Computed example of a mutant assay.
Amino acid sequence: MTSRATVGIPVYNGERYLSAALDSVRAQDEPDIEIVISDNASTDGTEAICRAAAAEDPRIRYHRQEVNRGGAWNFNHLVELATTPYFTWAAADDIRRPAFVRRCLEVFAAADPATVLVYPRTRIIDAEGRIIEDLNDADLACDEPTPHQRMRHFLTAQAAHIFYGLHRTEVLRSTRGIRPVVGNDMVLLTELACRGPFALVPEQLFLQRRHAEQFSAQGQAQVAWHAPQASVRFAFPHTRVSVELLRGVADSGLPVGERLRALATVPTAWTLPRWRGPAADVWAALGRQPRSQRAVVRA
């Protein structure tokens, strides 16, 4: 039987939550899926967990890298390995309800044929799996008729979690993929919004975990996630994401008028409302701390 969707699991030293994440993917009630794991040379118990699961489940393909080539490479590599029309990334610490893939496929079938991404509503869980937040995402369809309207919707909402929805594989491959920049999820979503509308599954089928060990909670150490051997000093992570958002629009092939409107959306919906990030980049380049952080240190 030919699979309809690929669930790609990028992982590096994810043993703490990996078994639960894998179980949630294996429990999907959509039977026609393939599960592809790319292990970025983990040094903990990740390999043993993955090999045991692959031995039990013929849908799983396990790929282990000889060296850690960075998180961005690992995410992009999984898209290359996919063999189905639809694709979703499953982080090694998140949970999906059993209906996740099936409902996304059903919404794709009923949606505008130009739709490029479908995602369910999301709840936030903590390290122990307890629900700690319901996201206010009931109106987050981002199905507006123009790219700049779709961009403004999710950029203003800071809705990075929709990145983990179900993508049309061929459209995903038409983008520049995961860029080596903090905020790469928003950059990719921007490129996708330039290609077509999104759609929302009304059920809460995605549980995104927040915990102290995830890279997004580690300040400038986030940069090392992309390139483990690179220096993060002078990386200007917040400034670079705005630049990449603009580049994504510029390279999208949109008609000139709509491209200009989309370019104008980046500073108004993203950069200016988050001016403290670029300001922090400047302070970091000067080897100084922002005034607010110095006050915390003195306290």
Rank of each mutant, 00 (worst) to 15 (best):
E106M: 07
R298K: 15
R176P: 06
H238M: 06
L105M: 05
Q220M: 12
C50T: 10
R150M: 02
A90W: 03
N136H: 14
V11K: 03
S24K: 05
H211Y: 11
I60H: 06
I9S: 09
S24M: 00
M151C: 04
Q208P: 08
G70F: 09
H77A: 15
V36M: 09
T83N: 13
G165K: 02
L192S: 05
R103S: 10
R247D: 10
E47L: 04
G14P: 03
G219V: 03
I178P: 06
S42R: 08
F163N: 06
G70T: 07
T271M: 12
G165D: 01
Y17T: 07
T156E: 07
A199N: 02
Q28R: 01
T146V: 07
A227H: 14
D126F: 10
G177N: 09
E56L: 08
A141W: 09
A114F: 01
T190P: 01
V182K: 14
R168E: 05
A160W: 15
L189V: 05
A54G: 12
G219R: 00
T115E: 06
H63L: 11
A91F: 13
E34Y: 13
V297K: 14
A235N: 12
T175F: 06
E30M: 02
R97I: 01
A227T: 14
A41Y: 12
F215G: 03
R209A: 09
Q220S: 13
L246I: 03
Y164F: 15
F100N: 04
P197E: 08
P197C: 09
R152P: 00
L135R: 15
R179M: 08
R291A: 15
Q28E: 02
N184I: 06
A91V: 06
R121E: 05
P31L: 02
E258F: 10
G70W: 10
V11S: 12
A160F: 12
F234G: 09
S252C: 05
E244I: 08
E128C: 08
E203Y: 10
Y17W: 15
T239Y: 00
R96T: 06
F215L: 06
A193F: 07
A21W: 01
P267L: 10
A52V: 04
V36C: 09
I9L: 15
R259F: 08
V11R: 11
W89R: 06
P278W: 00
P10L: 09
A285H: 08
H167G: 04
V256Q: 12
M151N: 09
T169W: 07
A159F: 12
T175Y: 11
F163C: 06
A227K: 13
R61E: 12
D23K: 11
T83L: 07
R123H: 02
G14M: 08
D139E: 14
A92N: 11
P147V: 02
Q229I: 00
T146Q: 09
I162V: 10
A114S: 13
A199R: 03
S252H: 07
D32F: 13
S19R: 14
A224T: 14
R96M: 12
A295T: 11
T83I: 04
S252P: 07
V223N: 14
